[in-house]
């Protein structure tokens, strides 16, 4: 199954695992990894055997140190870089996955690393995790959606302080500001992520996906429009369940 070079894709009991697998480069996101993620995400979403995804990093050091800086400036021009960005919109695709995604974060989650985790629905971290958007320190801004996703997840006041200073924070502070949902010991990270996955898998699967959709679409709408989306999805769900669709996982 695994024809990938920079990621590992595995499936077990309804869970798809995506492991960022460049441990010697602290799982930095290079062009190859972006292409492979771009390929694997729709496969995960389309696979009827998969109900939920867990994203993690290989190796001891961390989840991901961010974009691979050695590849910076390799695009022939800014115009071409811009064109490529939207031809294969990886981050848009990440946020468009209809199934729930859990990020299991250990060690460093910087730049595109934490930004990737912020494209997921649930973030669980080990107590040694460090989070940061250090881009302004190298003359950049976050470019994997971080300047947009972070203020939508945490108190905007905290978010702007973190982005403008480029400082890193620990797991406890990250949990305090709402960036992550749970902090556990390193040894317990995968069992905590799997426990969360199993909990979500015990719910109605279509309901879980529609709930995700209602929240994400609703945040971009006026309250009135958001309530309408919620009502439509509810009606759709009810008619599907009524028609005998199996929205619960088979025991």
């Amino acid at each position: 199954m695994n024809a990938f070079e920079t990621i590992i894709y595995e499936k077990k009991e309804g869970i798809a695992y995506i492991t960022l697998n460049r441990p010697r480069a602290l799982n930095a996101v290079n062009i190859r990894m972006r292409d492979e993620l771009y390929e694997v995400l729709p496969a995960l979403d389309d696979d009827p055997q998969v109900m939920i995804g867990i994203i993690k990093g290989a190796g001891d050091k961390g989840f991901s140190a961010g974009a691979d800086i050695t590849e910076f400036g390799t695009a022939p021009s800014q115009a071409i870089a811009r064109q490529v960005r939207w031809e294969r919109d990886l981050w848009g695709q990440f946020m468009g996955v209809s199934k729930p995604l859990i990020a299991a974060i250990h060690g460093f989650a910087l730049g595109a690393g934490i930004e990737m985790a912020m494209c997921c629905d649930i973030r669980i971290a080990s107590d040694d995790a460090r989070f940061g958007l250090p881009e302004v320190g190298i003359g950049m801004i976050p470019t994997a959606g971080g300047s947009q996703t972070m203020p939508r997840l945490v108190w905007p006041g905290m978010c702007i302080a973190n982005i403008l200073t480029g400082e890193t924070i620990g797991a406890v502070e990250a949990m305090r500001i709402g960036l992550i949902h749970r902090v556990v010991k390193r040894a317990d990270l995968m069992s905590a992520a799997e426990g969360m996955a199993k909990l979500i898998m015990s719910r109605g699967q279509l309901a879980v996906r529609y709930a995700k959709q209602a929240i994400n679409r609703g945040l971009d709408l006026s309250l009135e429009q958001g309530l309408e989306v919620e009502g439509e999805l509810f009606a759709l769900l009810l008619s599907t369940v009524g028609a005998g669709a199996t929205t619960y996982p088979r025991k």
Binding site: E135, V136, G137, I138, G139, M140, I141, P142, S147, Q148, M150, P151, R152, P156, C159, I160, I163, L164, T165, G166
Partner: peptide, 18 residues
């Protein structure tokens, strides 16, 4: 100590983006 244009753009991205 950070890059000044990047800091201003980061502020703009967060504030206008919301």
């Amino acid at each position: 100590s950070r890059a000044p244009i990047a800091v201003r753009y980061a502020k703009e991205a967060v504030n206008k983006g919301l």
